[in-house]
Design a protein around this nucleic acid. Structure first.
Lengths: 344, 344
DNA sequence: TAGCTGTCCGAAAGGCGTTTCGAAAGTTTT
DNA sequence: AAAACTTTCGAAACGCCTTTCGGACAGCTA
């Protein structure tokens, strides 16, 4: 009379109770054995573990969390549709405490305030240990408020409330790093093309650029060209600059997309990269940087480290560490490819 | 003597019990009121809801799940580092049952079997309602096995075990759709450049391409060019083909990257797109497709729909629907931009 | 043998909601 | 005013695991 129809997951997941019964011990003992606690005889432990693996027992994390008050899960609330920023941050968070230790609920608000709120509710309902908010740009974004029952860390885009904890890339240092690299490879007649002037990222990188030039005793060949974060703008701005100053030998670009556009126009003008002109991008977006001709030197924001730090901050706060508001800046690093140094 | 130090989230989250006490009812009644069940007087309900919102009560999803056996959470297990495939699928899954209904635990195995196993354990431990496995290519991947206690759906990359449920893009139809579009805009001398011949995606799209040509009574100008999924290959293959057949008027490319390469070489050869030659890509990867000159017509795999369907499948299986193994194919759609039709 | 220490194990409470079932209160009917 | 329903509410069990605390027992000493 048994039901023989093919039901793959009809079997209720085995519980600790099942294990205990099979091993002939109490739940308490089974729990201790499974969790490797000391107060259990080695022989008993082996018996329990055998039983556990026999029926394929996995502890029910829900029940565990109910007791411990920790879910070892963090929420990642983002509006970064392309995943360019959020995925490295996610990976960093996953790794913060070793593989498989903490899991990440990724919620994409798609730039919609209402949807963000839904997701926030869902995260709190699932009792995440904390929330990492990832913005779409490095401009400050509105705070989720101080009333949430879990720690919140803002990553990439800092919060506009200084009481919140924020982690952001150091764009100023990045701009300076970029120009210093060009100078170090012998460039002197350098310009800067970047994106929308309304973005803090554009302003900060430009400031770093100017500072780096000044520190080397150089003057930019032209004003900083603000525009948009697109290849199209990179193409157009490059054409304008080359017409005005045919002797430019270095382009610091505010994004890899802009740099791609610059490379294209340089080709059109018959300039060879990196011999005649060196080009450096920003973001180290691999799909763009490693597919261009030549490959693109770029500034990497080390977002993975930022994600790791964000997760660490959350659990520190949970452990009672004092929460210092404000923004911590992350130093970027230089990734050298063929657009600034001829590959032998 | 009160502790006045700034502790943001020291306050234990309010429980249903707190609500009940404040409203002067039992937990049972409070539960019914909060969940909008009928057996509660309207007056009482209002009192309870007022109390709930006063102390900012959010039901504890852990406890709920423990009772109901549902977490309304699915795991997304991927190795797609760039997120090109996984993010649309994630969004689709999120949306399958309306905003904020289900949440997604995103785990990136980074191509590592061991890490995948860790993540799988973590997902099962958290009692996800099901798992969506997203591959890196459309080639079949190894099955997670039939022994898991939750439904598993394979998306993008089907499982190699026909007993599993898989959802994959219809690459054959996509290849055909691409070539039909070129034919419909008057092209006749058409070639196909695609990626690694070891990929099912390359073979299937190529087969669809050939079929579409044959159906229109046309013969490809040259053999299908297999290579790699890179801009570099797109550039090189295009140069070879143009030298052999200067009169080519249509390129069907196996990926947007290849198409970008083709566009670049066409520029070098002085061909204008789309007047002299039409180019179509594949994947509709926006950052590539919308930043080229001209913008790239492409085939979109409708991954969001695929994600939605995957989530639906999981909950159907959970509700006891019979699980039919095998692969369901998703029809792609054409996204027309300037590389095939002159914009006015 | 009585007394003591140390080891190992189990009963039970706790964590937070949901649901069932029965009791109490209120309303209508006769 | 008594009987028969309805409606509304609450006690308690349940889901699964962790942890505390006390008890049982073995082994040792005096």
């Amino acid at each position: 009379m048994a039901d023989t129809s093919p039901r793959v997951h009809a079997t209720r997941a085995p519980t600790l109770n099942d294990v205990a019964q099979l091993a002939g011990v109490s739940m308490a003992t089974a729990s201790k054995a499974v969790n490797g606690r000391a107060e259990v005889a080695e022989k008993t432990r082996r018996r329990v573990l055998a039983a556990a693996s026999e029926i394929g027992f996995t502890p029910n994390g829900l029940a565990q969390s109910l007791v411990t008050g920790r879910t070892k899960t963090v929420g990642l609330l983002t509006s970064d549709l392309e995943g360019r920023f959020v995925l490295p941050i996610l990976m960093g968070a996953e790794d913060a405490f070793g593989s498989g230790e903490i899991s990440v609920l990724l919620c994409d608000a798609r730039g919609d305030r209402i949807r963000e709120n839904y997701h926030l509710k869902a995260l709190l309902n699932r009792r995440v240990d904390g929330i990492i908010v990832v913005g779409r740009s490095t401009d400050p974004r509105n705070s989720l408020g101080q009333q949430l029952p879990v720690p919140v860390v803002y990553a990439y885009a800092p919060s506009d409330d200084p009481r919140d904890q924020s982690l952001a890339p150091d764009n100023h240092a990045g701009g300076r790093l970029a120009v210093e690299h060009l100078i170090s490879v012998g460039r002197r007649r350098i310009v800067h093309i970047t994106g929308d002037p309304g973005y803090a990222a554009a302003q900060d990188r430009a400031a770093g650029f100017k500072e780096g030039m000044a520190a080397a005793g150089l003057t930019p060949v032209d004003e900083v060209m603000f525009g948009s974060w697109t290849e199209g703008w990179g193409r157009d701005a490059t054409a304008v600059l080359l017409q005005r100053h045919p002797d430019i030998d270095g382009f610091v670009c505010g994004s890899d997309q802009i740099a791609r556009g610059a490379l294209e126009t340089l080709r059109d003008f018959g300039r060879s990269v990196p011999e005649d002109v060196a080009v450096i991008g920003y973001d180290n977006w691999e799909v763009l940087a490693t597919n261009s001709r030549p490959e693109l030197t770029s500034i990497d924001c080390t977002l993975q480290g930022l994600g790791r730090q964000a997760a660490k901050r959350i659990f520190e706060a949970l452990d009672g560490a004092p929460v210092a508001g404000g923004t911590e800046l992350f130093l970027p690093k230089l990734v050298i490819r063929g657009s600034t140094i001829a590959s032998r």
